[in-house]
Every structure is written in C-alpha cells, then in structure tokens.
C-alpha cells in the first residue's frame, strides 16, 4: 500500500492562505496518484465548516470546495469538536447543550463534516503509511 496524506488545516479561512493552499495540495496529490487519507480541521480552520457564513458569489467558496473535493476523492472532512465548540461551529448534538432554547435544535456545521475528537487525529498519525502535512 502506498503512502497517503493526512492534512491538518489550522489556519483561518479569512485570515490565511491555509485553505487555498490545502485545496491545491489535494488536487496535486491526487493527480500524482496518491491518496488523501483525511483532512482534519483544528484551531481557526474550523470556521470553514460554518454553514451560516455568507460570502459574495464571485469569491472563493472554501466550504463548498472542500465538500466537492472530499466527494470526488472519497476522504473524510473532520472537525475537532472542542475547537468547533469554542468558535460556534456546532453539530445538533452539541447545540443541545446551549442555554438558549431558541437555538438548541440548530446545527451551525455543514452536515458533511464529521465532528470528532483530537484522538481521531492522533489515531491517524499512528498509522504507518500516513504522512502529515500542516496548513496554517
């Protein structure tokens, strides 16, 4: 089995080039015949999974681009639950813990992103033929 890549994206979608670079990296990697194992979003990068972000149509829609690539090349988009919770990127399960009953049923996260713990990243790094690349 050949090498596959785990991408760790930590940079903000609005204040860094992390997502654009990572998206280009995925395309180039797949083109050369390597597999993407998974993409893990941590720190400010989790904001890309917020479905309440509205950007003008003629600007890069980073969340949508991640969805398209993960669908085309069959890799998981993973969001750190603790990092998401700190930044208002919540699954429905997590939103249920909010005090405000008006919004406890509303998930702010795009459903195609998997909410996982940091342990998921550590487990991926323990796999023998996975290489980690960070984008910040």
């Amino acid at each position: 089995m050949s090498v596959s890549f785990c991408l760790l994206v930590t940079g903000s979608p609005t204040q860094s080039q992390a997502h654009l670079s990572a998206l280009e990296f995925v395309a180039a990697t797949v083109k050369r015949g390597y597999k993407i194992h998974s993409v893990f979003f941590y720190q400010e990068a989790v904001a890309v999974a917020n479905r309440f972000v509205l950007k003008p149509d003629d600007e890069a829609q980073l969340g949508k681009r991640w969805l398209t690539l993960s669908h085309s090349y069959q890799f998981e988009l993973q969001i750190c639950v603790a990092a998401g919770n700190r930044r208002g990127v919540l699954s429905q399960e997590e939103a249920a813990n909010l005090d405000d009953s008006a919004i406890t049923q509303i998930a702010s996260i795009l459903p195609q992103f998997q909410v996982v713990g940091l342990g998921q990243l550590a487990a991926t790094l323990n796999e023998p033929r996975v290489r980690l690349v960070q984008f910040k």
């Binding site: 941590y42 713990g117 940091l118 342990g119 990243l121 550590a122 487990a123 790094l125 323990n126």
Partner: peptide
C-alpha cells in the same frame, strides 16, 4: 494535542 498524542502512545 500533545496530551492526546501522548495518550495514544506517541
């Protein structure tokens, strides 16, 4: 992250 990696025996 360091704590979690240590817990996963890295």
């Amino acid at each position: 992250l360091a704590l979690v990696c240590a817990a996963f025996e890295q």
